[in-house]
Write a protein that binds this DNA or RNA. Structure first.
Length: 119
DNA sequence: TTGCTGACTTGGC
DNA sequence: AGCCAAGCCAGCA
């Protein structure tokens, strides 16, 4: 059964540590560019303390967390990402240009990015 | 069965 | 710069 959430989890599991992925990118990777909302819905069903699933590596298109006020500490997701090396600016957004990840990078490689150009 | 909601995104004003 | 409306779709009342 390749239920939707299974594929979502599988993809999220593939996100390397220290990298993030937007809901839209996850949806697009699954072949459904407009399913970003559903991704979020599935994530909402995922326990915030699930250590098996790096749900915190999934963020919104603005490079920020959308779980504010939804997790035990409002900024839990942000903290987890910071713990992995992702740096957030004062606005609570990270540079997708630097930390954004997509499946193709894992398949082929070479996705070295410059740390200098934030935004 | 219908109808609304939602951890979203994008475009227009 | 921020706010509003439309679009897609699974899950739930």
């Amino acid at each position: 059964m390749d239920s939707y959430h299974e594929r979502v989890y599988a993809l999220v599991l593939r996100i390397p540590r220290g990298r993030v992925m937007t809901y839209g990118s996850v949806a697009a990777a699954l072949g459904a560019p407009y399913d970003a909302r559903k991704i979020g819905n599935i994530m909402s069903l995922t326990p915030s303390d699930s250590r098996s699933i790096p749900w915190h590596r999934v963020i919104n298109a603005q490079g920020g967390i959308s779980t504010t006020g939804r997790t035990s500490p409002p900024d839990l997701q942000l903290r987890l990402l910071e713990a992995e090396g992702v740096v957030f600016n004062e606005k609570g957004c990270c540079s997708l240009r630097v930390y954004g990840w997509m499946p193709s990078e894992g398949a082929d490689a070479g996705g070295e990015r410059k740390q200098g150009d934030l935004f």
